[in-house]
Design a protein around this nucleic acid. Sequence first.
DNA 1: TGAGTTTAGAGAGTTTGTATCATGTTGAAT
DNA 2: ATTCAACATGATACAAACTCTCTAAACTCA
Lengths: 151, 151
Amino acid sequence: MPDHAHGSRADRLRDAGYKLTNARLTVLQVLEQSGGHITSTELLERVSAADPAIGRASVFRCLDLFTRLSFIRPTYIDNNVTPTYVLMPDGHHHHIICNACNRVIEFEECHLEALTKELEERLHVKLTGHLLEFYGLCENCCIEKAVTADE
Amino acid sequence: MPDHAHGSRADRLRDAGYKLTNARLTVLQVLEQSGGHITSTELLERVSAADPAIGRASVFRCLDLFTRLSFIRPTYIDNNVTPTYVLMPDGHHHHIICNACNRVIEFEECHLEALTKELEERLHVKLTGHLLEFYGLCENCCIEKAVTADE
DNA sequence: TGAGTTTAGAGAGTTTGTATCATGTTGAAT
DNA sequence: ATTCAACATGATACAAACTCTCTAAACTCA
């Protein structure tokens, strides 16, 4: 079994009652090295490269599990076939998707702590994470559109 | 050609340079009658019921187009196969997804106007919509978990 | 009316995710 | 350390979802 960094996500996995198996730790490691955005296809390739013994089904099982634990969240960026899984480092993630070129611009601040608390109290729910997505045009595509309109 | 309500979305479609075809108007109508959440499979069925002449590919082309125009946004609720498309009535939509039972709780207020404006100015982007998703446990699932932990 | 452009429909083909089940691994109790 | 039961895995066949390609139709504008 290869070396694994046993970070806080592995701890959370164990604390939630799940076993720390090779497949889960490898998938977690690949996700963490992905830079925050990865599709299932890319993930399958990289997991397979890291350990060819890990099967297809296990990778998908991990994606389900990690989604339920709010480690990641599937979202659509390029097309309607493959979701992109985004890491939610502290339980949350925020980005802007350009509707013209599909570029993703990430940003940090969301100021949603107050809303989170208010919703928890009013609706009696327990919130573990959130994803905030804005849609529109990025700087380049704004300029291109303006140029085209001038012609 | 069946009757269609020519609301503001049809206007936006035309204003963006797209033709108001029967397929597009029918898909739009079904989406608007869907109550805000619909999967591609359900949409295909209902469009087919409304007008059997409309083909599969056209429905998916509409979903792509309407997503680019921020009429709708695909998101994962139940599983990793079929996304659910949510209507974004005024360009935005907000909900809570229960990680245990997949129930969706919608809420209205998001207080994101200020952040939208700030991002537009700072990053020189033009934002047309947003989706805010919270994840966690709904009231019922909170209770069940507490009961299980007591045993 | 006629040329050019956009859009549609059909259906096969590709890709992505799932179900099943026998086997292997994990973690805890002894 | 050893053992055991529950949990998790891997292989593969299967099913579902989405796309591609091509031809035909509809719409636009002169």
